[in-house]
Design a protein around this nucleic acid. Structure first.
Length: 215
DNA sequence: CGTTCGATGCACT
DNA sequence: GTGCATCGAACGT
């Protein structure tokens, strides 16, 4: 699947009240998330993920996501029904579902679909825009390129400082949120990667021309 | 309570 | 391409 390519005209202007959140643009509303997951997944490409933390603000353009949809999706955490861990998937859309994978990587999802339908979009890679130095620090790297700072879901959360404390975080709030800076990217779909079941579904969406997606 | 294992990343070869 | 670090949820005693 292909979409048009267009670049954003400019960055959002500073808000009248000068508040940091406002200057980064308003969070996407809950209605954005409460829709079919594949629509949300594709429209998340090019949107800007923002984390406002005590140590600083990081932001980057989302360039790679995967959809996990419902109890019939064997790769979705809800495949075996409701549990304590996957409860956020059943909750209202527009919340973060964060969990620990392989004992060391935090992975962050945006919960989608109307409440009660367990589904989410996994954020897999972003192109760093703001707070690159902070990302380098969190990744414990000193120099080199920026395009691999947030490549891969585990690297992304590490660079952004996202951890289990962000589970159930409201993505329409001002701490961890996604906003629209007007970027439009050419996208395409591929099979999901890194999973052992239901890997054939083409539910991985990428920005076609991004140097920051995983291989 | 013990065992299994996963939507990974990185250092190796 | 292979091995491994590392931990909490889920599930079976």
């Amino acid at each position: 699947m292909r979409t048009q390519t267009r670049r954003a005209p400019d960055l959002p202007s500073m808000a009248a009240d000068g508040s940091p959140t406002s200057s980064l643009g308003p969070p996407l509303p809950r209605e954005f998330y409460g829709r079919p997951t594949l629509e949300v997944a594709r429209e998340l490409i090019g949107k800007v993920l923002v984390h406002v933390s005590p140590s600083g603000t990081t932001a980057g353009a989302i360039v790679e996501v995967e959809a996990y949809i419902g109890e019939t999706d064997a790769a979705c955490h809800a495949a075996s029904g409701f549990t304590g861990r996957n409860a956020p998937l059943y909750g209202p859309p527009g919340q973060a579902y964060v969990y620990l994978n392989y004992g060391m990587h935090y992975l962050v999802n945006a919960v989608t679909e109307p409440e009660g339908m367990p589904a989410a979009v996994l954020l897999r890679a972003v192109e760093p825009i703001q707070g690159c130095h902070l990302m380098q620090q969190r990744r414990k790297r000193t120099s080199s390129g920026e395009q691999d700072l947030c490549r891969g879901p585990g690297n992304l959360t590490r660079a952004f400082g996202v951890s289990l404390s962000h589970n159930r975080c409201d993505l329409t709030g001002n701490r961890l949120f996604i906003t629209d800076w007007g970027f439009t990217r050419s996208t395409h779909w591929t099979p999901r990667i890194g999973i052992r079941v239901a890997a054939r579904r083409r539910w991985r969406c990428l920005a076609s021309d991004s140097p920051a997606v995983s291989r």
